[in-house]
């Protein structure tokens, strides 16, 4: 507990967290705008001619459940990136500023220290999720009203998506800590994290689309293996035809988080600090 307090104090006593909060805000606003436009388009029924299969998919994302889920998890795309970067920094800044020596002198039980870092990163993720969700409940309801729907504040599917969104925030923070241990260089880890997240998801969508074209639809299930796609799948408001089920996305993401967290901790236990 002392260790977690100390880790949180470390974060609070530098300007990292509010710089990241400041970066998050415009990104959140941007995603809100996109989600609004999307909701507007989906509810106005002028998407042109669609095949039966496409129509089914559109119907799924255009359902109130899916729309409200999407709106109430606004900011997720960049939010996850931000908490992952915070998780990375929780570890790499110790190497960058050479404070890791002091940290391990203060408590030589490295598993405990690493656990505290994982928890602290999780607490940060929780706070980011809390603030974002509060904003989303207000802004999302407003958008739903604007496109002629109810606020959906009582929608079970929406609340499930909000809960899963929290899970995604937590898992990405843990993921970040793991990346930070694997790549101690602050710059190296940050760049890798961003590439993995952005490049990974965009590239993967592209590659998977091509492969699916060539080898058949089952390839679409591979998107599960891409962490950022798995997490967006996990928080999708409804199961979309042709996509893997949501629980699978959650399972994959938890798997990644556990593996990076455990591997990171084990590595840190053995590493010489010199």
């Amino acid at each position: 507990m002392n260790l977690v307090r100390s880790e949180l104090l470390k974060i609070r006593t530098t300007n990292t967290w509010w710089i990241f909060a400041l970066i998050s805000l415009p990104l959140w606003a941007l995603t809100l705008l996109i989600n609004w436009l999307q909701a507007d388009a989906l509810t106005s029924n002028n998407l042109g001619d669609l095949s039966a299969e496409e129509a089914a998919q559109v119907a799924a994302v255009a359902s109130v459940d899916a729309l409200s889920s999407n709106l109430f998890t606004t900011g997720q795309f960049f939010g996850l990136l931000i908490v992952m970067l915070l998780g990375i920094i929780v570890v790499t800044s110790e190497f960058f500023h050479q404070t890791v020596t002091t940290t391990f002198l203060t408590n030589p039980h490295r598993t405990a220290v690493m656990s505290a870092k994982l928890v602290a990163a999780g607490v940060l993720a929780l706070l980011f999720w809390l603030v974002t969700t509060a904003l989303n409940l207000v802004a999302g309801s407003a958008v739903l009203n604007a496109v002629g729907l109810d606020s959906q504040l009582g929608n079970d599917a929406a609340w499930r998506a909000i809960g899963l969104n929290l899970l995604a925030y937590l898992l990405w923070a843990v993921f970040g800590v793991g990346i930070g241990v694997l790549i101690r260089s602050q710059i190296g880890a940050t760049v890798t994290g961003i590439l993995l997240y952005l490049g990974g998801s965009i590239g993967a969508i592209f590659v998977i689309a091509i492969l699916a074209e060539r080898w058949g639809d089952w390839i679409n299930n591979l998107q599960l293996l891409v962490p950022s796609l798995a997490s967006s799948l996990m928080v999708a408001g409804a199961d979309i035809p042709g996509n893997p089920p949501r629980w699978a996305g959650a399972a994959v993401l938890i798997g990644y988080a556990v593996v990076t967290g455990v591997v990171g901790t084990l590595l840190m236990r053995r590493r010489d600090i010199s």
Binding site: N2, L3, R5, S6, L9, K10, T13, T14, N15, S93, H97, Q98, T99, T101, T102, T103, L105, T106, N107
Partner: peptide, 23 residues
């Protein structure tokens, strides 16, 4: 062990408080 082992952006007193909290 090293002279330069504190976060550049943290104040001296906060550096020590972080250690106090952990210990």
């Amino acid at each position: 062990l090293e002279a330069s082992s504190a976060h550049k952006g943290r104040t001296g007193i906060n550096h020590l408080r972080v250690i106090c909290a952990a210990a």
